[in-house]
């Protein structure tokens, strides 16, 4: 499974919705995720991609779209 598909699977898991957002669509402004789903999503990203995201990187903007999440993983992944 490619990164994008893995991210979509995470979003579907934490949102409980079987939707596939566009890669540039805001996950929060679109109403797909609420504020409390954000820490859950970040936790899942860490688990699935074996990442340890430092608090200083935890800005909502970095995890607002599939594109941005993918970019973060590219830059910080193993």
């Amino acid at each position: 499974m490619d990164k994008s598909a893995q991210i979509v699977a995470i979003i579907q898991k934490v949102s409980g919705k079987a939707l596939t957002p566009d890669s540039a669509e805001s996950l929060f402004d679109s109403g797909l995720l609420d504020s409390f789903a954000l820490p859950d999503m970040v936790g899942e990203i860490e688990k699935v991609f074996s990442l340890k995201i430092p608090d200083s990187d935890l800005t909502p903007r970095k995890f607002d779209t599939i594109e941005r999440i993918e970019q973060y993983i590219e830059e910080h992944g193993n």
């Binding site: 929060f28 504020s35 954000l38 820490p39 970040v42 608090d55 935890l58 800005t59 909502p60």
Partner: peptide, 10 residues
């Protein structure tokens, strides 16, 4: 709110 919740949750 998103930043507050994200940071507080950790």
């Amino acid at each position: 709110g998103r930043s507050v919740i994200l940071q507080a949750s950790r």
